[in-house]
């Protein structure tokens, strides 16, 4: 049962963005998120949208793939937009109708429409930006590595950075193994006449118990064996541990960080000096 599970959605093209240091990418995503929430002016949004489009082009990840990643969130995007259309109060009334007398009047303002559009755009560029940098152009292992190394200073205040990174690595390692195991257990239960696909919600939930219990039991057994195997290989936490692949910041990484900060500064400046429509 070789199930082909792709963890994350890494799409390797070997572009500059793929080759950047994960720490630089982490920093970029951080400034990018801050920029998006700081942005108020239409021009600032346009600027950030350009940044995202440029990123997608440079990374050479097919744009259709990136857009497909938005699919599961279409409902959330629509929901926030619709709420904004109806709930924003502005100056220029476009449409009004009393639905229940003296109680509920629907007012749609021009500002409401623009706000809704901008908020939808905000979510879309946020998702596209982060997914290009985090899932399409960075492998999970680079990401964990980047987090461990990037957050290393926090060790001084006793944050167990190495332990968290190790846990993430092991979790990623065992996702496909446990999926295989789940399928095996399901088939074993089906072979004994278990039924997972009919009945109401409660009946179906109950049918899952004979899957979950063996899965837990075997996971604990695996955990114990893995712990022994790790001990045999002299694992003793993060102290005194070296790494095979050492992350090294190159000039391009520093340039990239500089660009990230410029982006944030740019957004703030546009907010102050541009006089486009401002988000309410």
């Amino acid at each position: 049962m070789a199930l082909d599970v792709t963890i994350g959605q890494y799409y390797g093209t070997g572009s500059v963005i793929h080759r950047l240091d994960p720490r630089a990418k982490l920093l970029f995503v951080l400034t990018f998120i801050v920029s998006i929430f700081v942005a108020k002016d239409v021009y600032a949004f346009a600027f950030l949208a350009l940044v995202v489009i440029a990123s997608v082009l440079i990374s050479r990840v097919p744009i259709r793939l990136v857009l497909k990643g938005l699919k599961p969130l279409v409902i959330i995007i629509l929901f926030t937009s619709v709420l904004n259309i109806f709930l924003t109060r502005g100056e220029e009334l476009l449409f009004t109708k009393e639905i229940i007398k003296d109680f509920w009047t629907v007012n749609i303002y021009k500002e409401g429409l623009i706000n809704a559009a901008l908020l939808a755009l905000r979510i879309i560029i946020l998702l596209m930006g982060t997914s290009v940098y985090f899932s399409y152009a960075t492998t999970p292992i680079e990401l964990t590595d980047g987090l461990e190394r990037g957050l290393a200073p926090l060790k001084k205040i006793k944050v167990p950075v190495h332990e968290f990174a190790m846990m993430m690595t092991i979790a990623l390692r065992f996702i496909p193994t446990l999926i295989d195991e789940t399928i095996k257990i399901m088939n074993a239960q089906k072979a004994r006449g278990a039924d997972f696909s009919t009945g109401g919600l409660i009946k179906r939930a109950k049918a899952l118990i004979p899957i979950i219990i063996p899965l837990f039991v075997s996971s604990f057994r695996r955990a114990e064996e893995l712990a022994t195997a790790m001990e045999c290989r002299c694992y003793h936490g993060g102290n005194g541990r070296t790494r095979m692949n050492v992350l090294k910041m190159k000039i391009r990484d520093y340039v990239f960080i500089f660009l990230s900060l410029t982006m944030l500064a740019g957004v703030i400046l546009i907010n102050i000096y541009a006089n486009g429509y401002k988000l309410l």
Binding site: R173, A229, M230, R233, C234, Y235, H236, R241, R243, M244
Partner: peptide
């Protein structure tokens, strides 16, 4: 007994420790 998500990373695990 395999810890890492990439073969060579796993082989490196012991010497790293």
């Amino acid at each position: 007994q395999i810890v890492a998500t990439i073969v060579e990373e796993d082989v490196a695990f012991g010497p790293e420790n």
